[in-house]
Amino acid sequence: MRRVLAQGVKELAQFRRDRLTVALAFVLPLLTLLIFGYAIRLEAKNIPITIQDFDNTPLSRSYIERLYATNQFEPTPNGEDVGKAIDRGRATAGIIIPPNFSQQVMAGRGSSVQVLIDGTDVNNARVIQNSIQAVTRFFVQTSGLQTTPPRITPRTRIWFNPGRQESLYIVPGTCAVILWIYPSLLAAIAMVREKELGTIVQVYASSLSAVELLLGKALAYVLVGLCEAVAVVGLSMMLFGLRFAGDPTPFLLATPLFIAVATFFGLMIGTRASNQNAAVQAVATIGFLTAFLLSGFIYPLSNIPFPLSAVSNVVPARYYIPIIRDAFVRGTGWVGVWSHGFALVL
């Protein structure tokens, strides 16, 4: 045990002397947090939409105002041909209000409004379609145009995040990705550097065993990873307003375990890589892509097709992200995340 501690102290001393490694450990994670936290947005906003109003009555103008009142759409010059505006990329959607629109509606015969949507981005097209349909239903109800009351009226209440702040979803997941990538990257580089500089020969000549060498390095970079966790979570609280929503115990216990898993993953890569470039590429390819795409960070796990869905079962970030999101958003504690913690231990 003393030799493991001595090896860990030696690794920390080398870490402090290398300014580039210190920057990699603390500056890049914070930059990653800022980029991901502010750049990733899942909600579609400021969608350019063009409207041709051939009716030009108070009712049609009121309908147009209701569309823009959602703050989800932004107008393009009205009167421009809808088809040409979409073809040239100046609008993502277009609405054509026919002549006699107001007359037909007020007479109780109803009127159709043509909606054209650019389907290049399927998800965005679905959002636009649902938004326009919802606005139209709301306009009909609030304008007194609905002759009979709806038979079923849903009363919706959003739990855990009633303000629908995207940062409460994105930022905890970003912290998980950061705490997976950078500790593993540091450990992999440290292991490869021993071979590149030839200092691994001194280890072979000493009485230090391979297990003690790996445990010493792991101890050092787990401590570095914990410092990264404090810095990243602290900055998240200051900039994005994260607060513990309930019992933080699962998060506090799972974080050191998750960082330890990331560190040993990096050491495994480092023992196999022949140089630092290969180690960085391996961590970026295997570690980052799986943590980003197969962990539920952005895309729901239920959307991942087989066999990639089977691969996601061995991605540790898949089990840590629900724990950290529960700590800062849901607040259910052990009741909601005990299975993820158990899977992380395994």
Score class of each variant (00 low, 15 high):
L67M: 05
L67T: 01
L67V: 09
Y68H: 12
Y68N: 10
Y68E: 12
T70D: 08
T70P: 09
N71Q: 10
Q72D: 10
F73H: 08
E74D: 13
E74F: 12
P75E: 12
T76G: 03
N78L: 10
N78R: 13
N78V: 05
G79Q: 05
G79D: 07
E80G: 00
E80R: 05
E80Y: 01
V82F: 00
A85N: 04
D87V: 07
R88V: 09
G89L: 04
R90G: 05
R90A: 10
A91P: 02
A91M: 01
A93N: 01
G94Y: 02
I95K: 01
I96V: 15
I96E: 14
I97Y: 06
I97G: 06
P98M: 09
P98Y: 09
P98K: 08
P99M: 10
P99N: 09
N100R: 13
F101Q: 01
F101E: 01
F101W: 01
F101R: 00
S102E: 08
V105I: 15
V105L: 13
V105W: 10
M106V: 03
M106N: 01
R109C: 03
G110N: 02
S111W: 03
S111D: 03
S112G: 09
S112I: 10
S112K: 14
S112L: 11
V115M: 07
V115I: 14
V115N: 10
V115F: 08
V115Y: 07
L116A: 08
I117K: 00
D118E: 08
D118K: 05
D118N: 14
D118S: 05
G119K: 13
T120S: 11
D121P: 01
D121N: 14
V122K: 11
V122S: 12
N124R: 14
R126E: 13
R126W: 08
V127M: 08
I128T: 02
Q129D: 15
Q129L: 15
N130K: 12
I132N: 03
I132G: 03
A134M: 10
R137V: 11
R137L: 14
R137P: 00
V140S: 11
Q141Y: 06
Q141I: 07
T142A: 15
T142F: 11
S143F: 05
S143W: 04
G144T: 10
G144S: 10
L145G: 03
L145T: 03
Q146F: 00
Q146V: 01
T148R: 14
P149C: 04
P150N: 14
P150T: 09
R151V: 13
I152A: 11
I152E: 10
T153K: 11
T153L: 12
P154C: 05
T156D: 04
R157T: 13
R157Y: 07
